[in-house]
Design a binder for these strands. Structure first.
Lengths: 200, 200
DNA sequence: AATTTCATGTAATTCGTTACATGATTCC
DNA sequence: GGAATCATGTAACGAATTACATGAAATT
């Protein structure tokens, strides 16, 4: 029971897999390191962490300064809480990572998936990229059809908005084509250094 | 009381200003003619229409076939409902159209505003476009700063995601620059035909 | 006659924010 | 000692969706 936000849960598990963190830091990384993501508020994040703990996917640990826990237990105060991924949590994340269903082609979900491509198998990466591309191509098809139907009734601003919107989508398709090409060519971006002879 | 969704309310009033419509048709136009918009569901649209009526901004009229209303009143059945903007509604929309506050620079809100530029005064258009541009420039600034701080800790995929994200924003800024330039040059896109000598 | 598209609505639920409340730590 | 930032949480609310329920009109 209790469905949590797919993408927040996913991102939290993914970040914690890299290293344990407390809530505040987690939130910063959701905005910055993962960059393209939206900023979740504390009102969303903390309750989410609680349910992940309740599911056994995370455990709460005292902050790295041992006095934190000591002082807290003595005075009934609150200490910094560091969250760590459990074995079950790791397993669960692994399973989420291997999903390639239609949900994963959606805008925000796709960004989240892409952000963790460094931990994703190559064939899964391919399916996600190709799925995303065909989703965008469908979208383009609809836009073109609707534009053809209504073109003459629209004023210049509306037309310009649609033109710009379509161009953005077309641009993302080209980006995906390059990425897919690069994956096909066997370049694995998961390792940092360039392979020393394919780069000029 | 009872705050409604800013952008849905705005778009509904704007579409109905052009011509009266019933809910089903309205929803189609929210997806297609306005194109770039998100598709609101009926569960959102119909309740919204009711509150707009309650505010006195719309009135419900029987569908254009007169038998609709007749049959409906006789049998207690439901007829097609056409919504028409009242004078108060027109006034309210006019007021919304003249707003240029920070809300209007946000992604979806901006798209909605732009879609109705055909009914917007030139100085308001300018303020909305310039506000949007500076909002995007702030965003770019944050992205650059965060990238500079974290660059070396990130894997190639995360880097690529951020690079692509920034490029998209930069592209929109260039688009805005062109639009602003065009507005400054006095080209008013509200009239359809090109001014017959500036176009090649 | 059956299916699709048109058309209107409600109830439960999901997702997430804002505002509030609290307190520790760090920097000036 | 005061301000900023770090840190954790809750309650009330808001926006929108999904699933459900109903039925008319047009098309095949």
């Amino acid at each position: 029971m209790s469905r949590r936000s797919g993408i927040l849960e996913f991102a939290v598990l993914g970040l914690l897999r890299e290293s344990p963190m407390h809530g505040y830091e987690l939130r910063k990384r959701l905005n910055t390191s993962l960059g393209v993501f939206r900023a979740f508020s504390y009102g969303t994040l903390y309750p989410c962490l609680k349910t992940l703990v309740a599911n056994g996917w995370l455990i709460e640990e005292p902050g790295n300064a041992p006095e934190d826990a000591l002082a807290a237990s003595l005075a009934g105060r609150r200490a910094k809480i560091v969250y760590r991924l459990t074995a079950a949590g790791k397993e669960h994340f692994e399973e989420l990572l291997s999903h390639t269903g239609p949900e994963t082609w959606e805008d925000e979900s796709f960004a989240a998936r892409f952000a963790f491509f460094g931990q994703t198998e190559r064939d899964v990466r391919m399916r996600v990229l190709e799925g995303r591309r065909s989703r965008l191509e469908e979208r383009l098809e609809k836009m073109r059809a609707s534009l053809a139907r209504t073109r003459e009734r629209l004023d210049d601003y509306t037309l310009e908005l649609q033109r710009h919107g379509m161009e953005s989508v077309e641009r993302e398709v080209r980006w995906l084509n390059e990425l897919i090409e690069s994956e096909r060519a066997g370049r694995d971006r998961r390792r940092s250094g360039p392979s020393d002879e394919t780069e000029k």
